[in-house]
Design a protein around this nucleic acid. Structure first.
Lengths: 132, 132
DNA sequence: CTTGTCTCTGACGTCAGCGTCAGGTCTTAG
DNA sequence: CTAAGACCTGACGCTGACGTCAGAGACAAG
């Protein structure tokens, strides 16, 4: 498939796909005229890339991990990297959970009438999505 | 206290503190000669700011929320903002937990032999910090 | 053949949260 | 008094993941 189609399917911009190629995250076969041609597997690949970016990894880290994600084969070095990123993500989760709880406390305080005139909320609990 | 002391205590750079002031996140009384003078409460304030940055909020969002965090008083607008950020953070947590689990799977597969799909999920588990 | 849409390669623009350098002032120890 | 830091205000630099614009080729449809 061509770049526009992949972009639409993956929900990213054409520019982003070209950027991924530039960063060696995503390869494409070229047609004789130079147009990029992607296999279907590229869609999964792009979604991996997006999720890794969303988890706070840089292009450099991702390019080191992708071969392992592709083949499932890990060297000791990549396992080390995987573990390091996992631990970083875990710490990030802990930090976010902490902040979420702080915000919940503030929201609860606001709802139970502390402060704002007209915030007569009564018992206004949020949905019980306490677990991450 | 002066800016250098606050920076040291808070573990941030002097430049960062000046930036926070520029963004209206942190106020300082000025000495006659123009030097910034911070109250002790500024330390807590800076730590709030750091944590909010770490949770992915922008200066703009933080400046909208800080008055509420200071006074504990929330208007309807700030409660809406708080709730929106809470939900964003919750979604981010979910995304990170998902990625953490994916990485754990890969790590486990690598540990239980030459990594390959079909990974037998045998022993070699990580410490049981499954919950966020 | 022409039109419209898609694609190509540069290459500069953006935005946030600071780092860093320049040139001058303030404070404090000796 | 003087030297050494700490502090001041600009103001430019940096990084990463793209956005955007320019100018030109590619390709199916009528």
């Amino acid at each position: 498939m061509r770049i526009g189609e992949l972009a639409t399917k993956a929900g990213v911009s054409v520019r982003a796909l070209r950027y991924y190629e530039e960063q060696n995250l995503l390869a494409a076969v070229r047609s004789p005229s130079g147009q990029r041609c992607y296999p279907d597997s590229a869609l999964d690949r792009v979604q991996w890339i997006r999720q890794l970016y969303a988890a706070g990894l840089s292009s450099k880290k991702i390019v080191e991990l992708l071969p392992c994600l592709d083949t499932g084969v890990s060297t000791r070095a990549t396992v080390t990297l995987l573990a390091a990123e996992r631990d970083r993500i875990q710490a990030q989760i802990a930090s976010l959970v902490d902040m979420r709880d702080k915000l919940d406390t503030l929201i609860a305080a606001a709802r139970t009438g502390a402060g704002d005139p007209g915030a007569g909320g009564g018992p206004g609990r949020r949905a019980g999505d306490r677990q991450a």
